[in-house]
Amino acid sequence: MATMEKSKMIGDGKSPSQILKDIALSQEGILFIILVLTIMILSRSNENFLTTRNLFNQGRLMAEVGLMALPMTFIIITGGIDLSVGSILGLSAILVGYTWSNLGMPLEVAIVMALLGGSLAGFINGLIIVRINVPPLIMTLATLAFYRGLAQGISEARSVTGYPEWFFGLGQGTFLGFPSQLWLLIIAIIISITVLQRTTLGRTLYAIGNNAVGARFSGLPVDRTLLIIYTFSGFMAGLSGVIFVSRFTTTRSDMGNGLELDAIAAVVLGGTSIFGGKGSIIGTIIGVVMVQLLRNGLAINGVTNDATIVVIGSVLIVAILVNNQIQRLRQSE
């Protein structure tokens, strides 16, 4: 750790080419190069790929996973994991439908309810993880089943449709020429980067991930920080749920099934270490974009969905593999 800090500081005195090499060979740099290569290959093979329309559409599709991947990055940086986000998405989607349709409240209230419900679900995760010291994997594995079950129970497997027109603007409309949910994603990204890089909270996350006991003994508010990020994760999953409903124009209890693995895959692909202590929002964004563009690019080139899954799985493993090897070589230099 100390040597890394040192080399960064010496980096100021290095030649420009050396700094460029450092950036290119960092986790995010390598991923970015892979991403650019992917886009080049995909756009060569199909002219419809690199069009504004298609890219905006892809922006729409990746918003939900993107929103959930941001707090997931925070959580994985602390060495935790949140498997329940897909279920929280489903639960808050149901809350929108249930509050609006069954309780007869205005849709605005329903949306707030969904966001509150999502945050509460995340808060419960965090509370039990912090208070009883349950490993996050186990806690969120249990709530994965529990929240999905709540969604099923509340909805009684009935779907809710017939939302007012204005609500679809969130998931299908545009704002200032950009898909609306992409704005939300961009705002969330900016906030997340700022929090992670510029605030005590963000630095505390790295400290917890590197050495939780050490962080605690240094007087950092470990419990409060964890509570905040798990609640944040629930809130973002709730937000994704609302967008999801707006995009699909209907509410079903199985919404977002398995999305937690997509979010985790994006975070891991983005170079965040699953053991904690290392990672960045930029990497996660590259991961999210890469998965979505691969999926879309392969699809419009006539590759079946199943083959695409295979490619994405392989990319995940290979990217981490290559990255690991390069970082190891750099360290031994």
Binding site: L261, I264, A265, V268, I274, F275, T304, N305, D306, A307, T308, I309, V310, V311, I312, G313, S314, L316, I317, I320, L321, N324, Q325
Partner: peptide
């Protein structure tokens, strides 16, 4: 041998095996 964490490897294998199966 390649030191990829098992959760990452099997997350990838999850997609790969599922995709291969449906293909």
């Amino acid at each position: 041998y390649l030191r990829v964490p098992s959760i990452v490897v099997t997350l990838g294998m999850l997609s790969i095996l599922k995709g291969l199966l449906i293909m």
